[in-house]
Design a binder for these strands. Structure first.
Lengths: 200, 200
DNA sequence: ACACAAACTGACCCATCGGTCAACTTGATA
DNA sequence: TATCAAGTTGACCGATGGGTCAGTTTGTGT
């Protein structure tokens, strides 16, 4: 019962890919205010072509975020059956920060939070984080009062703090991930002033 | 040898103050893209008046940031001779996060980093942080490998992480400040992957 | 009260941006 | 190779934003 739709043309799929790459580069350079015209020029196509592939700028952003979110969700799944629960959680945080460092989409997240596909992936990722945190907590690798929401919120912090420097070393986030993860460890933990927030 | 300049008119200084308040509110609501027209309307003046007081939007932002930066620098100075070096550093971090929570100027910082007055205040603040960190380190309140640059960069993190929630409880940052500060404590500290960055 | 400079006003200018569309190309199919 | 829908193009549109300025109002020193 599939409608007899033609397969997409070869140049079309190529242009779509070029546009996503160009958009990523432009957003990285100029932030969320990067213009559609610049993105089109960088991809070597006309502005109208952008809107043939993505109905609006929001949808283009959502397509970018969806790709990265899917990659990260998949990566998180790979840690779910790691034999060492503590290293599994740290490994996920490292993976997440590394990806954020290479493709800074933090500022695009809010712009695409309303997108249903992004929301679905986000919830799926959150589910994996819940498993990772539960196992790490049961193993005594992290303190008992840390929740999955805490980890989710803290994921971007290591990269974020480095952005106050003009030319941060590309691996500097590892330093701050180390500090923050030490703060999650049971050793020397002091009581927290506020309860963990609910998700979302 | 002072030139015989008149004192400013009463309505002028009042309008300048109204504009700063309106700008703060508009930036808080709409981010850095808040428009000059909206700011002027909120302050109850015409658009041209904005440019009489501030040569450009950048300068308006710089004036706002200068005010908050001066407040924070002054606050930091108040902790310099606190008898407990650990509590002094924690007190400063608490003050800084509290101020960031009430007046979110993080996203305006980059827009005003080039301003010489902002740079001067930033350096003065950094000097105070250096004193606070040195005393806390000597007292054994924080681990030996934490530098003033680390503290400076981490200052905004507690508030930042809460911003991924739509309606974060206003004091939620205290939870993440607790976690991050625990990560700075000597107890259970693990070696850091990267050396501390130079300032700036 | 007067005079004047400082301050205010809002219409206007120009650049930019997201998005549209009618005309034109082109890749796949038969 | 003929055909045509799918894809591309770039001029165009309306909205919006930062910034200007000639004309007007107003606070203030005399």
């Amino acid at each position: 019962m599939t409608s007899p739709t033609r397969p997409p043309r070869a140049d079309s799929v190529r242009n779509r890919e070029l546009l996503l790459q160009a958009a990523e580069a432009e957003f990285a350079e100029h932030g969320a205010e990067a213009s559609i015209a610049d993105i089109a020029a960088r991809a070597g196509v006309a502005k109208g072509t952008v809107f043939r592939h993505f109905a609006s700028k929001e949808e283009l952003i959502a397509a970018l975020v969806t790709g990265h979110m899917a990659t990260l969700t998949e990566g998180a799944a790979g840690f779910l059956d790691d034999p060492d629960p503590g290293l599994a959680l740290l490994g996920f945080l490292t993976l997440a920060a590394d990806q954020r460092q290479q493709h800074d989409v933090n500022f695009l997240l809010t712009a695409s939070a309303a997108n249903p596909e992004v929301a679905r992936l986000r919830d799926e990722l959150f589910g994996h984080i819940e498993s990772l945190v539960a196992r790490a907590r049961d193993a005594g690798a992290i303190r008992a009062d840390i929740t999955a929401t805490d980890v989710f919120l803290l994921t971007c912090a290591p990269v974020h703090v480095t952005e106050f420097l003009e030319n941060p070393p590309p691996d500097l986030w590892r330093r701050y991930l180390g500090i923050i993860f030490d703060g999650m460890r049971p050793e020397g933990a002091s009581p927290l002033a506020m309860p963990a927030p609910k998700w979302p």
